[in-house]
């Protein structure tokens, strides 16, 4: 075997993304929700790297840098929200923060 087919890398990224999505959908604890989000972002970054190395272009790495920046920003804001949620409701269950019900 000589080299990895690009599909395999992309399938790995898709799998990780689907797992993150799954966690996002059924976890109620906000810590796990945020971690699932991180997984999904990381999967997107992986897809960029796979494409970048597959085509031997540096653009993939540049986009991965942007994804990492986004992940850092998202994590800081998300964790601040988490602290605020816990402060208000004394729980991490995001279902309690449902005052926007129509």
């Amino acid at each position: 075997m000589n080299g990895v087919p690009m599909e395999h890398g992309l399938v790995l990224a898709a799998t990780l993304f689907a797992l993150g999505l799954c966690g996002l959908m059924f976890r109620r604890n906000m810590i796990f929700v945020l971690m699932s989000l991180e997984i999904m972002l990381n999967a997107a970054g992986l897809a960029f790297i796979v494409a970048g190395t597959g085509w031997q272009q540096p653009q993939g790495q540049v986009m991965f840098l942007l994804v990492i920046t986004l992940a850092a920003a998202e994590a800081s804001v998300g964790l601040a929200l988490l602290i605020q949620l816990y402060h208000r409701f004394k729980t991490l269950n995001i279902d309690v923060a449902s005052r926007m019900r129509g």
Binding site: P5, M6, E7, V11, A18, L21, T53, G54, W55, G60
Partner: peptide, 23 residues
């Protein structure tokens, strides 16, 4: 969703192999 994605990827039209050249 995953199966859909894989089925979309698995069409054999990418035809590229990652050789491990340094980026």
């Amino acid at each position: 969703l995953l199966l859909t994605l894989i089925s979309l990827l698995w069409r054999d039209d990418i035809q590229r192999v990652i050789e491990g050249g340094e980026l």
